[in-house]
Design a binder for these strands. Structure first.
Lengths: 236, 236
DNA sequence: ATGCAGGCGATCGTATACAATTTGTCCGCC
DNA sequence: GGCGGACAAATTGTATACGATCGCCTGCAT
């Protein structure tokens, strides 16, 4: 039912099961219904989706390639628990690629794309004002979708996939180290970026993007617990 | 702790089987011992490495995540056959990220790193003068290693992994569409980049890198077969 | 002779079974 | 009473088995 359910890969029956499981778990992680450190037993996952361990395992394996799940030999799979250093690398990577993506996107953007982005923004703002877990989760997703949509507009499928990974992992990091209740991105900054693109102020848009990413990162408390991480693995 | 990062995961025997298979096949693809379009049957792969289909399948799956192998439902796995458009996206991605990686690397580079890079260059040059398949393959690898090493120096494991994917896929593209016998990169350009880094001419180094990547891409013949691509998927 | 149909072989998709490793608990000994 | 070892339970690692799908080849009919 997702808006992104495009007709790109309509073919399904094959491998659809593991694809579905993978996407479901990823969504749960990104929306923070699954906390970092949570164990994802192959049997449990299989039972949950009514498939055998084989497919559950394949899905978990796939998620581990995206960095959302970490599998430890003979121990099982867990929702990834990114270290502060990993978190810094994720944001460094975003600072590195997002300006470039932005430039590419700006070169190809259509009026339709712009209005679509604005639509996304509106939705995001609406969710921001609402209360409740569901709204919060939708807001997280919407705020990530802004960056993802930009990558999509850039027309480079490879960068798009990479950004999907980065955004998903960012969500994990924010869940772990975020301080402010404003869970995700500064909403207004997205708007400013769009405006800058509209006005063909490319350099300014890139500056804003960099500032935006840094702004998210500075809201994190990365210096803290190194030894406490252990304890938190218990909480579910 | 940083140097321990590799030893941490590289070790042990768990999952080593599929890891080993994956790496072996990847190396074979990158060194062009396996041509694009070659079928990789699960059974054959399993027999080749003396494991069951389960592990062979896992390895092929992993390679498909990296874009080196394409799996078609109920058909099997094949060495990827990147389309011209895909090839362009790969190089666009490299142009997008490599300057950034270069800047990061330059900021952290040590004299030891530089001499190591030069060593790599020497090796590359030596292989270039030699003849024979083996030397050619080693040259391909060495030329890719230059870019990879830069990513490693940058200290960002995420970008490093991404670059590994891009370099590997580039090798596939060059195998498919490369024209000049000089299979990989212009060797001298690597040297110029190092020199620029040494002299702290960062902007110039980035320019050289961009030029270098573009240079590789212009050596390709991407315009050709658009409708023929279909047919070629059949072959073999 | 050619074209379609149906069976045959091979390969993939999924599930299950078995082996190996780890973890948790219990008992005995110091 | 605390520590150590051994057994037992659970979970993962790997292999095999079974069912489904696809490609091919043969055979019959036109």
């Amino acid at each position: 039912m997702k808006s992104a359910a495009k007709a790109m890969q309509a073919e399904d029956s094959a491998e659809t099961s593991v694809q579905l499981i993978r996407d479901s778990i990823r969504e749960a992680i990104v929306e923070r219904r699954l906390s970092p450190g949570t164990k994802l037993s192959e049997k449990d996952v299989g039972n949950l989706f009514s498939v055998s361990r084989t497919l559950a395992r394949a899905a978990l394996q796939a998620l581990s390639y995206e960095g959302l799940v970490s599998v430890e030999k003979n121990r099982g799979a867990f929702v990834a628990y990114p270290s502060p250093d990993e978190a810094r690398q994720i944001f460094a990577a975003r600072r590195l690629v997002e300006p470039g993506i932005l430039r590419e996107a700006a070169a190809r953007i259509t009026p339709g794309d712009i209005s679509q982005l604005k639509q996304l923004l509106l939705e995001e703002g609406r969710l921001m004002s609402e209360r409740g877990q569901t709204a919060r989760r939708a807001e997280i997703k919407a705020s990530g979708d802004f960056h993802l949509r930009l990558a999509e507009i850039s027309g480079n499928a490879i960068m798009q996939r990479f950004m999907e990974e980065l955004v998903a992992r960012s969500s994990l990091v924010i869940a772990l180290y975020g301080q402010s209740t404003a869970s995700s991105c500064g909403h207004s900054e997205h708007g400013e970026i769009i405006t800058a693109i509209e006005n063909n102020e490319l350099d300014r848009a890139c500056q804003l993007m960099l500032h935006h990413i840094t702004h998210i990162e500075t809201d994190l408390d990365l210096r803290e617990r190194k030894s406490l991480g252990l304890k938190e693995a218990f909480e579910l």
